[in-house]
Write a protein that binds this DNA or RNA. Sequence first.
DNA 1: GTCTATACTGAGATAGAC
DNA 2: GTCTATCTCAGTATAGAC
Lengths: 239, 239
Amino acid sequence: MANARSDDIARQTPAPAVEEPPRKSDLTRQRILDAAARVFSERGYSGTRLTDIAARAGLQAGSLYYHFDSREKLIDEIMHLGTRRTHAAAVERLAALPPDASPLRRLETLIENHLLLGLEQSDYSSASIKLIWQVPADIRERQLVGQRAYGALWREELEKARAVGAIRPDLNLSTVRMMIAGALNWATDWYKPTGDSPTRLARDLVEMVLHGLARAPAREAGPDGGVADPPPATSRPRR
Amino acid sequence: MANARSDDIARQTPAPAVEEPPRKSDLTRQRILDAAARVFSERGYSGTRLTDIAARAGLQAGSLYYHFDSREKLIDEIMHLGTRRTHAAAVERLAALPPDASPLRRLETLIENHLLLGLEQSDYSSASIKLIWQVPADIRERQLVGQRAYGALWREELEKARAVGAIRPDLNLSTVRMMIAGALNWATDWYKPTGDSPTRLARDLVEMVLHGLARAPAREAGPDGGVADPPPATSRPRR
DNA sequence: GTCTATACTGAGATAGAC
DNA sequence: GTCTATCTCAGTATAGAC
Protein backbone atom coordinates (compact mmCIF):
# COMPACT_ATOMS: atom_id res chain seq x y z
CA MET A 1 0.00 0.00 0.00
CA ALA A 2 2.01 2.96 1.18
CA ASN A 3 5.69 2.69 0.55
CA ALA A 4 5.68 6.43 0.26
CA ARG A 5 4.15 7.10 3.64
CA SER A 6 6.00 9.93 5.14
CA ASP A 7 4.96 9.77 8.73
CA ASP A 8 7.15 12.77 9.31
CA ILE A 9 4.22 14.96 10.14
CA ALA A 10 4.30 15.65 13.79
CA ARG A 11 6.94 13.14 14.70
CA GLN A 12 7.31 14.15 18.25
CA THR A 13 10.23 12.33 19.69
CA PRO A 14 11.09 14.68 22.53
CA ALA A 15 14.14 16.52 21.26
CA PRO A 16 17.17 15.89 23.44
CA ALA A 17 18.09 18.95 25.43
CA VAL A 18 21.59 18.96 23.99
CA GLU A 19 22.59 17.92 20.46
CA GLU A 20 23.26 14.22 20.71
CA PRO A 21 23.90 11.88 17.85
CA PRO A 22 20.94 9.51 17.81
CA ARG A 23 22.18 6.51 19.74
CA LYS A 24 23.06 3.93 17.12
CA SER A 25 20.44 1.40 17.93
CA ASP A 26 17.62 3.46 19.03
CA LEU A 27 17.43 3.43 15.29
CA THR A 28 16.61 -0.25 15.49
CA ARG A 29 13.93 0.53 18.01
CA GLN A 30 12.47 2.99 15.57
CA ARG A 31 12.64 0.46 12.75
CA ILE A 32 10.73 -1.98 14.89
CA LEU A 33 8.07 0.58 15.68
CA ASP A 34 7.66 1.51 12.04
CA ALA A 35 7.46 -2.13 11.05
CA ALA A 36 4.95 -2.92 13.74
CA ALA A 37 2.79 0.07 12.88
CA ARG A 38 2.67 -1.06 9.31
CA VAL A 39 1.96 -4.70 9.98
CA PHE A 40 -0.66 -4.02 12.62
CA SER A 41 -2.41 -1.55 10.37
CA GLU A 42 -2.49 -4.14 7.62
CA ARG A 43 -3.33 -7.32 9.49
CA GLY A 44 -4.94 -6.18 12.69
CA TYR A 45 -4.53 -7.33 16.24
CA SER A 46 -4.89 -11.08 16.02
CA GLY A 47 -3.46 -11.34 12.53
CA THR A 48 -0.10 -9.90 13.51
CA ARG A 49 2.61 -12.10 14.97
CA LEU A 50 5.87 -10.94 16.40
CA THR A 51 7.55 -12.92 13.67
CA ASP A 52 5.91 -10.75 11.02
CA ILE A 53 7.08 -7.60 12.70
CA ALA A 54 10.59 -8.88 13.22
CA ALA A 55 10.84 -10.01 9.62
CA ARG A 56 9.83 -6.61 8.33
CA ALA A 57 12.27 -4.91 10.67
CA GLY A 58 14.99 -7.27 9.54
CA LEU A 59 15.67 -9.30 12.66
CA GLN A 60 14.58 -12.36 14.58
CA ALA A 61 11.52 -12.49 16.77
CA GLY A 62 13.46 -13.01 19.96
CA SER A 63 15.50 -9.89 19.33
CA LEU A 64 12.48 -7.71 19.73
CA TYR A 65 12.63 -8.29 23.45
CA TYR A 66 15.82 -6.36 23.76
CA HIS A 67 13.81 -3.27 22.80
CA PHE A 68 10.35 -4.01 24.15
CA ASP A 69 9.16 -5.85 27.20
CA SER A 70 6.20 -7.47 25.50
CA ARG A 71 3.94 -7.47 22.54
CA GLU A 72 1.46 -5.50 24.59
CA LYS A 73 3.92 -2.73 25.35
CA LEU A 74 4.70 -2.48 21.69
CA ILE A 75 1.04 -2.11 20.84
CA ASP A 76 0.60 0.48 23.56
CA GLU A 77 3.35 2.60 22.16
CA ILE A 78 2.25 2.37 18.54
CA MET A 79 -1.30 3.31 19.32
CA HIS A 80 -0.21 6.10 21.56
CA LEU A 81 2.03 7.51 18.85
CA GLY A 82 -0.80 7.20 16.37
CA THR A 83 -3.11 9.29 18.48
CA ARG A 84 -0.47 11.90 19.21
CA ARG A 85 0.40 12.13 15.57
CA THR A 86 -3.18 12.59 14.43
CA HIS A 87 -3.72 15.16 17.11
CA ALA A 88 -0.55 17.09 16.38
CA ALA A 89 -1.26 17.15 12.66
CA ALA A 90 -4.74 18.46 13.37
CA VAL A 91 -3.41 21.26 15.52
CA GLU A 92 -0.86 22.11 12.90
CA ARG A 93 -3.34 22.26 10.08
CA LEU A 94 -5.77 24.31 12.08
CA ALA A 95 -2.98 26.75 12.85
CA ALA A 96 -2.19 27.00 9.17
CA LEU A 97 -5.67 28.26 8.39
CA PRO A 98 -6.21 31.98 7.98
CA PRO A 99 -7.19 33.39 11.34
CA ASP A 100 -10.60 34.35 10.06
CA ALA A 101 -11.45 30.91 8.74
CA SER A 102 -15.03 29.99 9.50
CA PRO A 103 -15.91 27.34 12.07
CA LEU A 104 -17.16 25.11 9.29
CA ARG A 105 -13.88 25.45 7.48
CA ARG A 106 -12.14 24.41 10.66
CA LEU A 107 -14.34 21.36 11.04
CA GLU A 108 -13.66 20.52 7.45
CA THR A 109 -9.97 20.64 8.23
CA LEU A 110 -10.36 18.30 11.18
CA ILE A 111 -12.27 15.83 9.05
CA GLU A 112 -9.80 15.89 6.19
CA ASN A 113 -6.83 15.58 8.47
CA HIS A 114 -8.21 12.61 10.31
CA LEU A 115 -9.23 10.78 7.17
CA LEU A 116 -6.04 11.39 5.26
CA LEU A 117 -3.78 10.38 8.11
CA GLY A 118 -5.81 7.25 8.69
CA LEU A 119 -5.93 6.27 5.05
CA GLU A 120 -2.48 6.90 3.75
CA GLN A 121 -0.31 9.30 5.62
CA SER A 122 0.55 7.45 8.77
CA ASP A 123 0.76 3.79 9.64
CA TYR A 124 0.62 4.82 13.28
CA SER A 125 -2.66 6.63 12.82
CA SER A 126 -4.11 3.76 10.79
CA ALA A 127 -3.00 1.26 13.38
CA SER A 128 -4.42 3.17 16.31
CA ILE A 129 -7.74 3.49 14.53
CA LYS A 130 -7.87 -0.06 13.34
CA LEU A 131 -6.87 -1.60 16.64
CA ILE A 132 -8.90 0.41 19.08
CA TRP A 133 -11.87 -1.97 19.15
CA GLN A 134 -9.83 -5.11 18.52
CA VAL A 135 -7.49 -5.01 21.45
CA PRO A 136 -8.31 -6.39 24.92
CA ALA A 137 -10.19 -4.02 27.16
CA ASP A 138 -7.24 -3.00 29.33
CA ILE A 139 -5.21 -1.81 26.38
CA ARG A 140 -8.21 0.01 25.01
CA GLU A 141 -8.84 1.79 28.29
CA ARG A 142 -5.33 3.16 28.38
CA GLN A 143 -5.67 4.39 24.83
CA LEU A 144 -8.99 6.05 25.36
CA VAL A 145 -7.44 8.02 28.17
CA GLY A 146 -4.67 9.13 25.84
CA GLN A 147 -7.23 10.19 23.27
CA ARG A 148 -8.99 12.63 25.53
CA ALA A 149 -7.03 15.64 24.39
CA TYR A 150 -7.77 14.91 20.76
CA GLY A 151 -11.41 14.34 21.56
CA ALA A 152 -11.47 17.60 23.40
CA LEU A 153 -10.17 19.40 20.35
CA TRP A 154 -13.07 18.08 18.31
CA ARG A 155 -15.53 18.99 21.02
CA GLU A 156 -14.23 22.53 21.23
CA GLU A 157 -14.43 23.08 17.53
CA LEU A 158 -17.94 21.69 17.40
CA GLU A 159 -19.05 23.84 20.29
CA LYS A 160 -17.47 26.89 18.80
CA ALA A 161 -19.33 26.24 15.58
CA ARG A 162 -22.57 25.83 17.44
CA ALA A 163 -22.01 28.94 19.50
CA VAL A 164 -21.91 31.08 16.38
CA GLY A 165 -24.84 29.27 14.81
CA ALA A 166 -22.87 27.57 12.07
CA ILE A 167 -24.22 24.14 12.92
CA ARG A 168 -27.56 22.81 14.00
CA PRO A 169 -28.37 23.19 17.65
CA ASP A 170 -30.57 20.14 17.98
CA LEU A 171 -28.06 17.30 17.75
CA ASN A 172 -26.22 15.73 20.63
CA LEU A 173 -22.67 16.81 19.96
CA SER A 174 -21.05 13.79 21.45
CA THR A 175 -23.20 11.59 19.27
CA VAL A 176 -22.21 13.74 16.32
CA ARG A 177 -18.58 13.31 17.20
CA MET A 178 -18.86 9.54 17.37
CA MET A 179 -20.79 9.33 14.15
CA ILE A 180 -18.20 11.33 12.29
CA ALA A 181 -15.49 9.22 13.83
CA GLY A 182 -17.31 6.11 12.67
CA ALA A 183 -17.67 7.29 9.10
CA LEU A 184 -13.98 8.24 9.01
CA ASN A 185 -12.53 5.31 10.89
CA TRP A 186 -14.51 2.64 9.14
CA ALA A 187 -12.88 3.85 5.94
CA THR A 188 -9.55 2.70 7.31
CA ASP A 189 -10.91 -0.81 6.95
CA TRP A 190 -12.74 -0.75 3.65
CA TYR A 191 -10.53 1.66 1.76
CA LYS A 192 -8.77 0.18 -1.26
CA PRO A 193 -6.24 2.28 -3.15
CA THR A 194 -7.90 1.20 -6.38
CA GLY A 195 -11.04 3.24 -5.87
CA ASP A 196 -11.53 6.91 -5.32
CA SER A 197 -8.51 8.80 -4.06
CA PRO A 198 -8.37 9.72 -0.40
CA THR A 199 -8.75 13.34 -1.39
CA ARG A 200 -11.90 12.57 -3.28
CA LEU A 201 -13.22 10.49 -0.39
CA ALA A 202 -12.49 13.35 1.95
CA ARG A 203 -14.44 15.70 -0.25
CA ASP A 204 -17.52 13.48 -0.35
CA LEU A 205 -17.25 12.83 3.33
CA VAL A 206 -17.03 16.48 4.25
CA GLU A 207 -19.99 17.19 2.03
CA MET A 208 -22.04 14.44 3.60
CA VAL A 209 -21.21 15.34 7.13
CA LEU A 210 -21.78 19.04 6.76
CA HIS A 211 -24.64 19.19 4.30
CA GLY A 212 -26.18 15.76 4.25
CA LEU A 213 -27.34 13.43 1.61
CA ALA A 214 -30.75 14.85 0.90
CA ARG A 215 -31.18 17.29 -1.90
CA ALA A 216 -31.49 20.61 -0.12
CA PRO A 217 -34.09 22.50 -2.07
CA ALA A 218 -33.09 26.09 -2.76
CA ARG A 219 -30.30 26.18 -0.27
CA GLU A 220 -28.72 29.59 -0.18
CA ALA A 221 -25.09 30.40 0.41
CA GLY A 222 -24.07 30.27 4.04
CA PRO A 223 -22.47 33.16 5.86
CA ASP A 224 -19.01 31.66 5.57
CA GLY A 225 -17.05 31.60 2.38
CA GLY A 226 -14.98 28.53 3.05
CA VAL A 227 -17.31 25.68 2.43
CA ALA A 228 -18.56 24.82 -0.99
CA ASP A 229 -22.29 24.72 -1.31
CA PRO A 230 -23.83 21.63 -2.80
CA PRO A 231 -23.61 21.82 -6.55
CA PRO A 232 -26.69 22.44 -8.65
CA ALA A 233 -28.97 19.65 -9.70
CA THR A 234 -27.38 19.47 -13.09
CA SER A 235 -24.17 17.96 -11.77
CA ARG A 236 -23.31 14.69 -13.39
CA PRO A 237 -24.08 11.77 -11.09
CA ARG A 238 -21.18 9.61 -10.00
CA ARG A 239 -21.48 5.82 -10.20
CA MET B 1 -27.05 -5.21 28.07
CA ALA B 2 -29.69 -7.20 26.33
CA ASN B 3 -31.33 -9.91 28.32
CA ALA B 4 -34.45 -8.94 26.53
CA ARG B 5 -33.11 -9.29 23.03
CA SER B 6 -35.76 -10.94 21.02
CA ASP B 7 -33.91 -12.01 17.94
CA ASP B 8 -37.17 -13.36 16.70
CA ILE B 9 -37.29 -10.90 13.89
CA ALA B 10 -36.69 -12.73 10.70
CA ARG B 11 -35.52 -15.96 12.22
CA GLN B 12 -35.22 -17.87 9.05
CA THR B 13 -34.58 -21.45 9.91
CA PRO B 14 -35.83 -23.07 6.76
CA ALA B 15 -39.16 -24.48 7.78
CA PRO B 16 -39.29 -28.25 7.42
CA ALA B 17 -41.50 -29.29 4.57
CA VAL B 18 -43.63 -31.36 6.88
CA GLU B 19 -44.49 -30.62 10.50
CA GLU B 20 -41.72 -32.18 12.50
CA PRO B 21 -41.11 -31.80 16.18
CA PRO B 22 -37.82 -29.89 16.48
CA ARG B 23 -35.27 -32.64 16.97
CA LYS B 24 -34.48 -32.64 20.68
CA SER B 25 -30.94 -31.50 20.48
CA ASP B 26 -30.98 -29.26 17.57
CA LEU B 27 -32.15 -27.18 20.46
CA THR B 28 -28.70 -27.49 21.92
CA ARG B 29 -27.23 -26.43 18.65
CA GLN B 30 -29.42 -23.36 18.76
CA ARG B 31 -28.40 -22.63 22.33
CA ILE B 32 -24.80 -22.76 21.28
CA LEU B 33 -25.39 -20.39 18.42
CA ASP B 34 -27.21 -17.95 20.65
CA ALA B 35 -24.48 -18.13 23.25
CA ALA B 36 -21.75 -17.67 20.69
CA ALA B 37 -23.49 -14.72 19.05
CA ARG B 38 -23.74 -13.05 22.39
CA VAL B 39 -20.20 -13.68 23.53
CA PHE B 40 -18.65 -12.76 20.21
CA SER B 41 -20.64 -9.55 20.09
CA GLU B 42 -19.44 -8.68 23.56
CA ARG B 43 -15.80 -9.74 23.44
CA GLY B 44 -14.90 -9.82 19.79
CA TYR B 45 -12.92 -12.29 17.76
CA SER B 46 -9.77 -12.78 19.76
CA GLY B 47 -11.40 -12.19 23.13
CA THR B 48 -13.79 -15.10 22.77
CA ARG B 49 -12.74 -18.62 23.73
CA LEU B 50 -14.71 -21.77 23.10
CA THR B 51 -14.81 -22.20 26.85
CA ASP B 52 -16.74 -18.94 27.22
CA ILE B 53 -19.28 -20.01 24.66
CA ALA B 54 -19.65 -23.46 26.13
CA ALA B 55 -20.08 -22.06 29.61
CA ARG B 56 -22.85 -19.74 28.50
CA ALA B 57 -24.56 -22.53 26.63
CA GLY B 58 -24.26 -24.76 29.67
CA LEU B 59 -21.87 -27.45 28.52
CA GLN B 60 -18.20 -28.29 28.23
CA ALA B 61 -15.92 -26.94 25.55
CA GLY B 62 -15.29 -30.33 24.02
CA SER B 63 -18.99 -30.91 23.57
CA LEU B 64 -19.25 -28.11 21.09
CA TYR B 65 -17.56 -30.32 18.54
CA TYR B 66 -20.49 -32.62 18.39
CA HIS B 67 -22.41 -29.72 16.84
CA PHE B 68 -19.75 -27.77 14.99
CA ASP B 69 -16.63 -28.84 13.16
CA SER B 70 -14.54 -25.92 14.31
CA ARG B 71 -14.52 -22.50 15.85
CA GLU B 72 -14.31 -21.08 12.36
CA LYS B 73 -17.43 -22.85 11.17
CA LEU B 74 -19.26 -21.49 14.16
CA ILE B 75 -18.17 -17.96 13.37
CA ASP B 76 -19.15 -18.40 9.75
CA GLU B 77 -22.63 -19.42 10.69
CA ILE B 78 -23.18 -16.68 13.25
CA MET B 79 -22.05 -13.95 10.93
CA HIS B 80 -24.06 -15.34 8.10
CA LEU B 81 -27.17 -15.43 10.25
CA GLY B 82 -26.46 -11.87 11.37
CA THR B 83 -26.39 -10.59 7.84
CA ARG B 84 -29.49 -12.51 6.82
CA ARG B 85 -31.33 -11.28 9.85
CA THR B 86 -30.46 -7.63 9.26
CA HIS B 87 -31.39 -7.97 5.64
CA ALA B 88 -34.67 -9.72 6.30
CA ALA B 89 -35.68 -7.18 8.92
CA ALA B 90 -34.91 -4.38 6.48
CA VAL B 91 -37.07 -5.94 3.80
CA GLU B 92 -39.84 -6.45 6.29
CA ARG B 93 -39.80 -2.91 7.55
CA LEU B 94 -39.67 -1.48 4.08
CA ALA B 95 -42.66 -3.59 3.17
CA ALA B 96 -44.51 -2.25 6.19
CA LEU B 97 -44.23 1.31 4.94
CA PRO B 98 -47.16 2.85 3.13
CA PRO B 99 -46.72 2.23 -0.56
CA ASP B 100 -46.37 5.92 -1.26
CA ALA B 101 -43.61 6.49 1.29
CA SER B 102 -40.96 8.81 -0.06
CA PRO B 103 -37.50 7.56 -1.00
CA LEU B 104 -36.06 9.51 1.92
CA ARG B 105 -38.47 7.83 4.28
CA ARG B 106 -37.31 4.50 2.94
CA LEU B 107 -33.68 5.39 3.48
CA GLU B 108 -34.54 6.49 6.96
CA THR B 109 -36.07 3.10 7.55
CA LEU B 110 -32.95 1.32 6.34
CA ILE B 111 -30.79 3.41 8.63
CA GLU B 112 -32.95 2.88 11.68
CA ASN B 113 -33.29 -0.80 11.10
CA HIS B 114 -29.58 -1.35 10.73
CA LEU B 115 -28.71 0.69 13.78
CA LEU B 116 -31.33 -0.79 16.05
CA LEU B 117 -30.56 -4.37 15.14
CA GLY B 118 -26.88 -3.76 15.62
CA LEU B 119 -27.27 -2.00 18.93
CA GLU B 120 -29.81 -3.99 20.79
CA GLN B 121 -32.13 -6.17 18.83
CA SER B 122 -29.93 -8.97 17.65
CA ASP B 123 -26.72 -10.48 18.95
CA TYR B 124 -26.26 -12.01 15.54
CA SER B 125 -26.38 -8.65 13.81
CA SER B 126 -24.07 -7.10 16.38
CA ALA B 127 -21.64 -9.94 16.05
CA SER B 128 -21.55 -9.86 12.28
CA ILE B 129 -20.90 -6.14 12.36
CA LYS B 130 -18.32 -6.26 15.09
CA LEU B 131 -16.41 -9.18 13.65
CA ILE B 132 -16.28 -8.30 10.01
CA TRP B 133 -12.93 -6.47 10.19
CA GLN B 134 -11.52 -8.57 13.01
CA VAL B 135 -11.67 -12.00 11.46
CA PRO B 136 -8.99 -13.47 9.19
CA ALA B 137 -9.28 -12.52 5.56
CA ASP B 138 -10.72 -15.82 4.36
CA ILE B 139 -13.65 -15.66 6.74
CA ARG B 140 -14.22 -12.05 5.83
CA GLU B 141 -14.27 -12.81 2.12
CA ARG B 142 -16.97 -15.40 2.54
CA GLN B 143 -19.03 -12.99 4.58
CA LEU B 144 -18.69 -10.13 2.14
CA VAL B 145 -20.04 -12.40 -0.55
CA GLY B 146 -23.01 -13.19 1.65
CA GLN B 147 -23.60 -9.50 2.22
CA ARG B 148 -24.01 -8.65 -1.43
CA ALA B 149 -27.76 -8.94 -1.43
CA TYR B 150 -28.07 -6.62 1.52
CA GLY B 151 -25.66 -4.17 -0.04
CA ALA B 152 -27.67 -4.31 -3.22
CA LEU B 153 -30.78 -3.35 -1.32
CA TRP B 154 -29.07 -0.22 -0.04
CA ARG B 155 -27.75 0.58 -3.48
CA GLU B 156 -31.18 0.25 -5.04
CA GLU B 157 -32.82 2.50 -2.51
CA LEU B 158 -30.11 5.11 -2.90
CA GLU B 159 -30.35 5.01 -6.65
CA LYS B 160 -34.09 5.22 -6.54
CA ALA B 161 -33.80 8.29 -4.33
CA ARG B 162 -31.34 9.87 -6.67
CA ALA B 163 -33.44 9.08 -9.70
CA VAL B 164 -36.31 11.14 -8.37
CA GLY B 165 -34.03 13.94 -7.20
CA ALA B 166 -34.48 13.34 -3.50
CA ILE B 167 -30.76 13.16 -2.83
CA ARG B 168 -27.75 15.02 -4.13
CA PRO B 169 -26.46 13.86 -7.48
CA ASP B 170 -22.82 14.76 -6.90
CA LEU B 171 -21.74 12.14 -4.37
CA ASN B 172 -20.31 8.76 -5.17
CA LEU B 173 -23.06 6.46 -3.99
CA SER B 174 -20.82 3.63 -3.01
CA THR B 175 -18.80 6.01 -0.90
CA VAL B 176 -22.01 7.24 0.63
CA ARG B 177 -23.02 3.72 1.41
CA MET B 178 -19.76 2.95 3.14
CA MET B 179 -19.81 6.18 5.11
CA ILE B 180 -23.27 5.50 6.40
CA ALA B 181 -22.26 1.96 7.24
CA GLY B 182 -19.29 3.31 9.15
CA ALA B 183 -21.32 5.75 11.19
CA LEU B 184 -23.81 3.01 12.03
CA ASN B 185 -21.45 0.13 12.59
CA TRP B 186 -18.95 2.03 14.68
CA ALA B 187 -21.79 2.65 17.09
CA THR B 188 -21.92 -1.08 17.77
CA ASP B 189 -18.54 -0.62 19.43
CA TRP B 190 -18.89 2.64 21.33
CA TYR B 191 -22.54 2.38 22.31
CA LYS B 192 -23.15 2.18 26.03
CA PRO B 193 -26.69 1.60 27.30
CA THR B 194 -26.14 4.37 29.80
CA GLY B 195 -26.21 7.17 27.26
CA ASP B 196 -28.82 8.17 24.73
CA SER B 197 -31.30 5.48 23.82
CA PRO B 198 -30.84 3.67 20.53
CA THR B 199 -33.96 5.38 19.28
CA ARG B 200 -32.54 8.77 20.07
CA LEU B 201 -29.25 7.84 18.45
CA ALA B 202 -31.12 6.70 15.38
CA ARG B 203 -32.90 10.02 15.21
CA ASP B 204 -29.69 12.05 15.37
CA LEU B 205 -28.03 9.76 12.94
CA VAL B 206 -30.80 9.97 10.40
CA GLU B 207 -30.78 13.73 10.72
CA MET B 208 -27.03 13.94 10.22
CA VAL B 209 -26.95 11.63 7.28
CA LEU B 210 -29.84 13.16 5.46
CA HIS B 211 -29.50 16.82 6.31
CA GLY B 212 -26.00 17.30 7.61
CA LEU B 213 -24.46 19.07 10.48
CA ALA B 214 -24.33 22.58 9.10
CA ARG B 215 -27.11 24.97 9.86
CA ALA B 216 -29.08 25.07 6.66
CA PRO B 217 -30.16 28.66 6.30
CA ALA B 218 -33.74 29.04 5.22
CA ARG B 219 -34.26 25.48 4.22
CA GLU B 220 -37.72 24.92 2.91
CA ALA B 221 -39.84 21.84 3.24
CA GLY B 222 -38.99 19.07 0.80
CA PRO B 223 -41.50 17.51 -1.54
CA ASP B 224 -41.95 14.49 0.67
CA GLY B 225 -43.98 14.48 3.82
CA GLY B 226 -42.20 11.70 5.63
CA VAL B 227 -39.00 13.22 6.85
CA ALA B 228 -38.91 15.79 9.56
CA ASP B 229 -37.21 18.99 8.57
CA PRO B 230 -34.48 20.28 10.79
CA PRO B 231 -36.02 22.11 13.69
CA PRO B 232 -35.87 25.89 13.87
CA ALA B 233 -32.86 27.67 15.30
CA THR B 234 -34.60 28.14 18.58
CA SER B 235 -34.37 24.47 19.51
CA ARG B 236 -32.70 23.88 22.80
CA PRO B 237 -29.13 22.65 22.37
CA ARG B 238 -28.29 19.19 23.66
CA ARG B 239 -25.13 18.68 25.72
C1' DG C 1 -25.07 -36.19 23.22
C1' DT C 2 -22.15 -34.83 26.77
C1' DC C 3 -18.45 -35.68 29.82
C1' DT C 4 -13.34 -35.99 31.22
C1' DA C 5 -8.89 -36.31 29.88
C1' DT C 6 -5.45 -35.42 26.82
C1' DA C 7 -3.02 -34.46 22.49
C1' DC C 8 -1.52 -30.83 19.45
C1' DT C 9 -0.19 -26.35 17.94
C1' DG C 10 1.02 -21.59 17.43
C1' DA C 11 2.97 -17.89 19.26
C1' DG C 12 4.75 -15.13 23.14
C1' DA C 13 8.52 -15.08 26.03
C1' DT C 14 13.26 -16.38 28.11
C1' DA C 15 18.27 -18.13 28.26
C1' DG C 16 22.67 -18.14 26.94
C1' DA C 17 26.11 -18.12 23.15
C1' DC C 18 28.29 -15.00 20.17
C1' DG D 1 22.48 -6.03 20.29
C1' DT D 2 21.18 -9.99 17.84
C1' DC D 3 21.09 -14.84 17.18
C1' DT D 4 19.50 -19.74 18.01
C1' DA D 5 17.29 -22.76 20.82
C1' DT D 6 13.95 -23.70 24.02
C1' DC D 7 10.29 -23.09 27.45
C1' DT D 8 5.56 -22.23 28.52
C1' DC D 9 0.97 -21.75 28.09
C1' DA D 10 -3.48 -20.88 26.35
C1' DG D 11 -6.70 -22.51 23.49
C1' DT D 12 -8.38 -25.54 19.75
C1' DA D 13 -9.24 -29.98 18.77
C1' DT D 14 -9.61 -35.25 19.44
C1' DA D 15 -10.41 -39.82 21.93
C1' DG D 16 -12.92 -42.73 24.43
C1' DA D 17 -15.87 -43.56 28.55
C1' DC D 18 -20.51 -43.11 29.97
